[in-house]
Amino acid sequence: MKLFCGCFCVWALTIVGCTTDVEPIKDRYAFEVPANFPVPHYTFQNNPVTADGFELGRILFYDGMLSRDGNISCSSCHQQHVAFADPLHRLSIGVDERVGTRNAPAIQNIAFKKFFFWDGGVNHVDFVPIAAILNPLEMDESLASVVAKLKADEKYRTRFEAAFKTDEINSQRMLHALAQFMNMMVSANSRYDRYIRNEGEQLSASELRGLAAFRHKCASCHATDLFTDDDFRNNGLDASFEKDTGRERITEFAGDRGKFKVPSLRNVALTKPYMHDGRFKTLEEVLNHYQSGVKDSETLDPILYSNGVLGIAMTEQERTDILSFLHTLTDESFIRDKRFSQPPN
């Protein structure tokens, strides 16, 4: 009996040793597709996630060196505690306090998206940082100069060598590292997710009524469990679009004027201010808009103008229920995930 116990202990210890040492390390850098998500769109065959590549991307994301004056990093405008959106500024603020033209959106589940930015001008995760780095209102720097700065930095030379098994630093490897880091930002552990995947989570009566109302009134655009149809639509914010023509800027087609990317509503309770120009400070204001603020124009989405009535009719009860449902999309583990936080120096 004593012998058996000893054996068992050794056996149990080995198992414990295995699970704590090996498994979590493997999982930490594995890109996994949540059961309720579509297939990812990213070209992982050209850039698989590795531990060293991811950690390099993380350091780059938090490094002001990517900007002209060294002061602005990706994280200046994309902060983890609000799902990598910018809680403070309606329009983003870049080098020399320059005011941008749009609100910084959340960064989440981007490996599943076809288009990036409010007008969809960027069509691959690898190209996202180029737009931020080159934009004079954001980082105001050139890619060639960023690459030169990285090459001159001993710490980065070692990191690139570890990540890509070559000491040659080029823009592709920098962009790949950032893409590895951002692709891993998968948010799929909200109360809604655990409910929909039958993982033992219950939603309240109000939240469930809100979900039903949302499916009825909002989900034709905020579709699938990504809460976007990945398309461009005009949701009636304005009647004319001199300030920002939206999708038309890319397609040069008048029929796309005033259409913007349908944003995901994951973590939406955290990602204020809302819309492409951050015009609404609260979700209540957003609901007011859909209820009574929708403006007609040539490209207004027909869903928002049915039977001669503008907007989406909602009772007081439906408003309350939709609001409480939207809060079930908050993913606490995502905003606390240590993998994505500022790396220790």
Partner: peptide, 23 residues
Amino acid sequence: QVTQGAQVGVLDPAKGLFWSWNS
């Protein structure tokens, strides 16, 4: 080629011939 993501050689976007706002 563009849908393959970041490229090298003469297609390196650091060559300055890449439209950042309209990939």
